[in-house]
Each structure stands twice: as C-alpha cells, then as structure tokens.
Simulated assay, not measured.
Amino acid sequence: MESSISDTKNAILLVGKEANHVTHELLASLSAKGVSIHVVDCGMSFRAFRLADSTKGLDFPVLHEVLVQRAFTPYQLMDFINGLLLDRDNLERKSRLYAFLAPSKEFFDKDIKEDERRFLLESLVAKFNQLQEEGFSLLISESRTKEELAYDTYILHLKEAVHCKLIEPIRQKEIDNGKNSRSLFS
C-alpha cells in the first residue's frame, strides 16, 4: 500500500501553538494512506501514541510506515540534512515525507551565542531550500513561538525558501454540549 509524494516539490510550514497537534493529525492521515514518513524530532514533541490512537481500527500497520529519529543539537540536524542531500539519488529515501518537528528549538539553547544562532538558522533555511529543490517533500512544524527577532526572521526566510504558505492552525474549541468533541465517537 506504499504511496509516494516525491513527484511534487511539496513543502508545508505549520507554525504556532497548534502546529504539533495538526502535524500529528496530518501524519496519521498520510501514513494511513501508505505514505512513508520520516520524522525528525528536534523538540521531543513526537507522540507515537497520538499517531497510533488516531489510526486505531485500520487494517494497516500505520506505525510501520513511520521512521522516527531525534536530533539533539543543531549540528545533528544539519548532519542529517547533509546526509539526505548527499544521497539525493536514492529514490526510496526521496519518496518519503520528511517531517521536521521544532527544528529551530535547539538553535535557541542558551549555550548558543547570538551570532552563531543567526548563522546556523540561515544555514538551516538554506538546507531546507536545497532539500525542496532536490524534490524532497517536507513538513516543517514549529510549535513554539519565540519572542526574538532571530526567530521571526528565520520563519520569514524559511517560508520564502521553501516556497510555501505559512499556516498557523487554530484548533476548533469544544462547545459545552460536546458537538465538536471527537471523544464522543472514539
């Protein structure tokens, strides 16, 4: 049931409080359709249970289509992306959706000086641009907003570099009578 989305240069950028929640819903939906997904969790925000729970009842091993890895530092993230770019001709790797969860989180660690942060964020944006230009499909989710000019600049440059709309999802609030509650039907 494998499906590929590599024939288009897809990029989705989700930002804001609800980005992680919506990202998990997208991952569940896509993996249920057989899309191979590689999650790069940079902010300890991947929730396997949420993905499994939202796809329970399917006759398809959804979690078998999802690879997960953690990047603990900006340098590990950049090394992973460099590895993808070096292996750009590998059609199996290129057919996956690469979901980057909170890729900028570690760049704002207190141990990283401001000049280094700016340089690393610019490099990250350039790497995402290269991935997209090479035909990799990207889902970038930044769920935590930072009150810093460097973060705002990073988001703006990222949006321009991957040629996509900036989506700031808003979760529909539950009404007291439960009409919008998904828990009623699960």
Rank of each mutant, 00 (worst) to 15 (best):
A48C: 07
F49K: 08
L27D: 08
E18L: 03
S31A: 15
L63F: 14
I37V: 15
V39F: 07
E65H: 15
A48Y: 07
I37K: 13
V22I: 11
S36H: 11
H21I: 03
H38W: 15
D59S: 07
V62A: 09
G34C: 14
V40M: 10
S29Y: 12
E25K: 03
N20M: 06
V62D: 01
V40K: 06
H21Q: 10
L58T: 07
A19V: 10
F60E: 04
L27Y: 08
D41W: 03
S29C: 11
D59E: 08
P61I: 03
L27I: 15
V22N: 02
G16K: 07
L30P: 02
A52P: 00
H24T: 02
E25M: 07
G57R: 04
H64R: 12
A48D: 05
D59F: 05
M44N: 13
E25D: 09
E18P: 03
A19L: 09
H21E: 03
K17H: 08
A32Y: 01
C42G: 15
A48H: 05
A28R: 04
H21F: 14
V62H: 02
L63I: 14
H38N: 15
F60C: 05
L63T: 13
L63G: 03
A48E: 13
C42R: 07
L30V: 05
H24Q: 10
T23W: 01
A32W: 00
H64C: 06
L27F: 11
I37D: 14
F49M: 05
G34Q: 13
E25I: 00
M44H: 05
A28M: 09
K56N: 06
R50Y: 01
L27N: 09
T55S: 13
V62Y: 02
G16W: 09
T23A: 15
A52R: 01
A32K: 02
K56P: 00
C42T: 07
S31E: 09
L27C: 14
K33T: 04
F46I: 08
V62T: 15
D53V: 00
H38K: 14
L51T: 15
E25N: 03
D41A: 01
S31W: 00
T23P: 03
A52T: 02
N20L: 13
L30S: 09
S45F: 04
V62K: 01
G43L: 02
L26H: 04
R50A: 09
G43F: 03
L63V: 13
E65P: 02
E65Y: 15
R47A: 06
K17E: 12
H64F: 08
V39L: 11
V22H: 05
S29A: 14
V22M: 12
L51A: 13
T55H: 03
D53I: 00
R47Q: 07
S54K: 03
L27A: 10
P61K: 09
F49V: 05
E18S: 13
V22K: 05
G57A: 04
H24P: 06
K33S: 14
D53M: 00
S29M: 11
E18V: 08
L27W: 11
L26S: 10
T55M: 04
L26I: 15
E18H: 13
G43K: 04
L26P: 02
H38E: 14
S36E: 14
E18F: 13
D53W: 00
R47P: 02
